[in-house]
């Protein structure tokens, strides 16, 4: 039984197309509130005096901080949220009507630490798409890559993850 292809030419054309998102400035408070909710009180995140005496030279963010935030910026208004609280992603054509597979996990490479005061830019692109057959019908796996840069255009983090589109 052959299902119709969900990967339209329009969708496939999105492979490799880069989308840029400005995350704004990462503050010390952002970093520390995040670490606090993890219950991770590593002095590298909290103690400037301590961190200055390490090769980092000052407070850093937990390595996975940037990629742990679900929505940078304002995000949808409450009325735009679906019943499960997840908003539709409106910015990226390739992920229109896509639901982030929350259970997916990530593959991360850390190139440089994120520091308070950094102004971050994220460049994301779909690298591949694949149609699969699920119990409730066909779905598309979108392999996406995000690269995070600071205000000096230094690459900080590379993230690869899979989104699912039904």
């Amino acid at each position: 039984m052959t299902a119709e292809s969900l990967i339209t030419d329009e969708l496939r054309a999105q492979i490799g197309v880069e989308h840029e998102t400005l995350l704004g400035e990462i503050t010390l408070l952002d970093i520390q509130r995040y670490a606090l909710t993890v219950g991770d009180l590593n002095p590298l995140y909290f103690d400037e005096e301590y961190a200055r005496q390490t090769p980092y030279g000052g407070i850093i963010a937990p390595p996975n901080y940037l990629t742990a935030v679900i929505t940078w910026g304002l995000g949808p208004q409450e009325a735009e949220l679906s019943v499960d609280g997840l908003g539709l992603r409106r910015n990226e054509q390739a992920e229109r009507n896509a639901r982030r597979r929350m259970a997916g996990g990530q593959q991360l490479e850390f190139h440089q630490p994120v520091r308070p005061g950094d102004v971050i830019r994220c460049v994301s692109r779909a690298t591949d798409m694949e149609q699969r057959e699920g119990k409730s019908g066909p779905f598309v796996l979108i392999i996406a890559e995000q690269r995070y840069f600071n205000q000096r255009d230094e690459l900080l983090v590379t993230c690869r993850q899979t989104a699912i589109m039904r």
């Binding site: 993890v38 590593n42 002095p43 961190a51 090769p55 390595p63 996975n64 850390f110």
Partner: peptide, 22 residues
Amino acid sequence: GAYLVQMLMDWIGPFGVLKKFA
């Protein structure tokens, strides 16, 4: 993921570096 990162960062200490994590 964050819990696993916490374990790794605690273990490697302030002179160690987490290069990759999945």
